[in-house]
Design a protein around this nucleic acid. Structure first.
Lengths: 165, 165
DNA sequence: CAATTTTCGGACAAATTTATCATAAACCGT
DNA sequence: ACGGTTTATGATAAATTTGTCCGAAAATTG
């Protein structure tokens, strides 16, 4: 588990909003409650997370009827990193894998260089991938976004065959 | 933070033991207290972790004077994965990054394929890297193992120059 | 203006992880 | 056999994360 629950929920909600906005360009706000129910996220917990996201100006909110929340910027301008930074602290990317307090390039822990590669890749993803990238071609299924099956081992034609993972 | 504190401490302690055993082949047991103090790990917490490690037969222990703990197998035969498995659950490698309960190759979350690569690499490391690999050429410094500076950007000759990270 | 709907904020509760303690059990040297 | 030393165990406490609740505050509608 790399991200906290809060971060996972935040990303889920932001994805939901982005995709919904794409298909309902006329409607401005979506209610937190609807997102929570669609994604089976505990409502009150999500409400708290949403507050963080608005404080960090990733969301705008409006009270009252027809109110709700909406992306504060376009999906192209919201990166995973922005979301993580709002709800988690991103210090796990600087923290030593095995917890050495002085794990630096000068006094690296034995796993330092191997792990550096991993961290670099993780950082690359969360820094570059935007909501727009993620909702592209993805579709809702049971309230959650499912990626197009055009990358993996098996693409299209998923009949009775193929094992599960 | 990928691993739990407990897992970090466990790896630290196992590394310490392995290296110490290498340089003191005559002495059988090392005391938990000594490891805790050398690595600044809360003693009682480490003692708990050590119990898990002995239950999983990664360590053997002996009570009484001249007692303590020792590796149950040679460092070549102890992988990071073994240590993690003893103190954490390794389910975070199967868990979806953004927490979708149904994130499978058939209904992958939008980050699934990108993250798959990361997970594969993490698994590859913890599955293949052994204590023997890690202590090789590493040396103690303030009670902690420091890797040889022969990989990184800067090797040897680290005078007044070079920035920190 | 009143009623309704929604977010906001603080306080609280539950669960998990991290850390501490006290005591028992095992061992060793004498 | 005894006293000291060390791990083993179970109980407990503190800290953090996760989840819940309620009473506002703000906005819309009639």
């Amino acid at each position: 588990m790399i991200f906290s629950r809060a971060a996972e929920y935040a990303i889920q909600a932001m994805l939901y909003l982005a995709k919904w906005h794409e298909t309902h360009p006329e409607e401005r706000y979506l209610q937190t409650r609807e997102i929570a129910e669609a994604q089976e996220i505990p409502y009150y917990f999500l409400a708290k997370i949403v507050q963080d996201l608005t404080r960090f100006e990733l969301l705008t909110s409006a009270k009252g009827p027809q109110g709700g929340i909406a992306l504060a910027r376009s999906p192209e301008e919201i990166r995973i990193l922005d979301i993580i930074a709002a709800v988690d602290s991103t210090q796990y990317l600087s923290r030593c894998v095995i917890g050495y307090p002085e794990c630096t390039p000068e006094t690296p822990c034995p796993l330092h260089y191997d792990w550096q590669k991993i961290k670099t890749q993780i950082f690359h993803i969360i820094e570059h991938v935007t909501l727009a990238d993620l909702i592209k071609d993805a579709q809702f299924q049971n309230g959650r976004l499912v990626a197009p099956l055009t990358f993996g081992v098996v693409s299209v034609e998923l009949g009775e065959s193929s094992g599960k993972s």
